Lab assay of single mutants.
Amino acid sequence: SISSRVKSKRIQLGLNQAELAQKVGTTQQSIEQLENGKTKRPRFLPELASALGVSVDWLLN
């Protein structure tokens, strides 16, 4: 799922939720909701993929 991929990649990069949120241009709460499965397809998906160094396709599939 996107939530597990985001969380595992974030941890692999040594980032906390607030640091990832800053790179993406969103809030820590938005990252938390995404990782908890409350958000399925965030509006900041391209920025998120870029910050994590992955493709949008990788996040979604």
Rank of each mutant, 00 (worst) to 15 (best):
S1D: 14
S1P: 10
S1Y: 09
I2R: 02
I2Q: 03
S3H: 11
S3I: 05
S3A: 15
S3V: 05
S3W: 09
S3R: 07
S3F: 06
S4E: 15
S4V: 13
S4G: 11
R5T: 05
R5F: 07
V6Q: 01
K7I: 10
K7N: 06
S8K: 15
S8Q: 15
S8V: 10
S8E: 14
S8F: 15
S8W: 15
K9F: 05
K9R: 15
K9G: 04
R10Q: 01
R10M: 04
R10S: 04
R10F: 01
I11Q: 10
I11V: 11
I11P: 01
I11G: 06
Q12A: 13
Q12L: 10
Q12D: 09
Q12M: 10
Q12S: 13
L13M: 11
L13H: 05
L13N: 05
G14P: 00
G14E: 05
L15E: 00
L15K: 02
L15P: 00
N16R: 06
N16T: 15
Q17M: 11
Q17H: 09
A18M: 11
A18W: 14
E19W: 04
L20G: 00
L20S: 01
L20P: 00
A21D: 00
A21E: 01
A21N: 02
A21G: 05
A21I: 01
A21P: 02
Q22K: 13
K23V: 10
K23M: 15
V24I: 11
V24D: 00
V24W: 03
G25V: 03
G25T: 03
G25N: 08
G25W: 03
G25K: 06
T26S: 06
T27S: 12
T27L: 06
Q28E: 12
Q28H: 09
Q29I: 12
Q29W: 14
Q29K: 13
Q29R: 13
I31K: 14
I31S: 01
I31A: 01
I31V: 06
E32P: 00
E32T: 08
E32Q: 12
Q33R: 14
Q33I: 08
Q33H: 12
Q33L: 14
L34Q: 01
L34Y: 04
L34W: 03
L34H: 01
L34S: 01
E35C: 02
E35T: 02
N36K: 11
N36C: 09
N36S: 14
N36A: 14
G37Q: 05
G37Y: 05
G37C: 06
G37D: 06
K38C: 11
K38N: 12
T39L: 15
T39N: 14
T39V: 15
K40Y: 12
K40L: 14
K40M: 12
P42S: 06
P42R: 03
F44H: 06
F44S: 03
F44C: 06
F44G: 04
L45C: 03
L45D: 01
P46L: 13
P46G: 11
E47R: 13
L48I: 08
L48C: 02
L48H: 00
S50A: 15
S50R: 11
S50K: 15
S50D: 12
S50C: 09
S50H: 13
A51S: 06
A51D: 02
G53Q: 09
V54A: 03
S55G: 07
S55R: 07
S55Y: 04
V56D: 04
V56H: 05
V56F: 07
V56Y: 07
V56N: 04
V56M: 12
D57L: 11
D57S: 13
W58I: 03
W58C: 04
L59I: 13
L59Y: 02
L59T: 01
L59H: 00
L60K: 08
L60H: 06
N61D: 12
N61H: 12
